[in-house]
Amino acid sequence: MRSDISRDLTRRELLAAGLAAAGAFALHSRVNAAPSAAEGPYGPFKMGLQSYSLRGYMANGKPDVKKALAITKDLGLHHWEAYPAHIPMTASSDEIARYKKLTEAEGVAVIGYGVIPFTKDHEANRKFFEFAKAMDFGYLSADPSLDSFDSLDKLVEEYGVGVGIHNHGPGHHYALIDTIAKVIKDHHPKIGCCIDTGHFLRSNEDPVRAAEVFGKRIYGVHLKDVKEHKDAKDVTERMKFTVLGHGDLRTADLLKVLAGLDYQYCLALEYEENVLNPVEDLRACLETVREAVGTLKKS
C-alpha cells in the first residue's frame, strides 16, 4: 500500500476544524467504543478495513470514498484504517467536518490512517499529527526514515497518537521483525509496529511471532493472507496474496495472541487482489475471521 499526501496544514486551521466538527464527536465516540467478546461476531476486536482494499471503486478519476463507505457498511463493519486517497489530509475545517459526517452517516469510525512517510523534518511531521488529532485517529501507520525518530518521540508524546511501523515486504528496510524491534527499542512506547501479516509472510516471517514480540506496541494490524507456491519457477510467483484462510496465516493463533494483549486498535482486513470487484472475496475473508473468533470463545 502506498500513500500520496501533499496538502499543507496549520495548527490554527486544524483547531478550527476540530471546533467545526465538535457536534459529530459524540456519535464518533459511540461507534469507536471497544466491543466486548459478547457483542458480536468479531468478539473483542474493532474489526474493520484498511480502505485500500476498496481503492478500485472510482468516481471522477479518484477513489470513491462514498462507495467505499457504503460497501463497508454492507459488510457489517464499523471501523477503518483510512487510505489517504479516500480521506486526503487537509487543513480545511469544512473538509474535515464533511469527512466526519460521511463516515458517521455509514456508522464507520476512522481510527487509523496511513501509510505515512515520516522524515527528519519535524514541522512536516507535526502536520500529520495535527491532522490525526483533528480527525480523532488513534494511530498512524508509517514508513519512517531512520532519521525521523527523534522527531517522532516528541510528537507521539505531545499528541498521544501512536505510530506503527508498517513492514512492506521482502527487500524493504522494515521487512523483518527483529529489524523493527531493534529500531524501536530505545524509543517512546507509542512507537511500535503496524503488523502487515501478508508482507511478513512474504518475508518468511511469522506474524504470530510478530504479535508476541511487539505486544502492547502494536499500532494497527493489516490482516491478509499469502500462499507459498514452492514449485513456482518464477520467484515473483512463489508468494501470492490470497483470500484469508486459503494461505499460510495462522489466523486463529494470531487472534488469540491479540486478544490476550487486549488489542484495541483496528483489526483491518486488507485485501490486495481482485481490485475492481473484491466484495465477495472480502466476505469470504470475514467468514474466516468469524470462525477464528469462534475458537477464542471456546477456549
Rank of each mutant, 00 (worst) to 15 (best):
L69N: 07
I71L: 07
I71E: 08
K73A: 15
D74F: 05
D74Q: 15
L75H: 05
L75V: 08
H78N: 14
H79P: 06
W80K: 10
A82S: 15
Y83H: 15
Y83V: 02
P84S: 07
A85M: 14
A85Y: 06
A85N: 14
I87F: 13
P88T: 07
S92G: 06
S93H: 04
D94W: 07
E95D: 08
E95M: 05
E95W: 01
I96L: 13
I96Y: 03
R98M: 08
R98S: 08
K101P: 00
L102N: 11
L102K: 09
E104G: 00
E104H: 02
E104R: 02
E104W: 00
E106D: 08
G107C: 11
G107L: 11
G107V: 14
V108E: 04
A109V: 07
G112Q: 10
G112P: 06
Y113L: 09
G114S: 13
G114F: 05
V115P: 01
V115T: 14
I116G: 00
P117W: 06
T119V: 13
K120N: 13
K120Q: 13
D121Y: 15
D121R: 14
H122C: 07
H122E: 13
N125W: 07
N125M: 08
R126K: 15
R126C: 07
R126N: 06
K127W: 01
F128E: 12
F128Y: 15
E130H: 12
F131W: 10
A132H: 04
A132S: 14
A132F: 06
K133N: 11
A134N: 10
D136P: 00
F137S: 06
F137C: 12
F137P: 08
F137A: 08
Y139Q: 12
Y139G: 00
L140C: 04
L140A: 04
S141Y: 02
A142V: 02
D143G: 03
D143R: 05
P144I: 03
S145M: 11
S145N: 07
S145V: 04
L146E: 07
L146V: 11
L146T: 11
D147T: 11
F149A: 02
F149S: 01
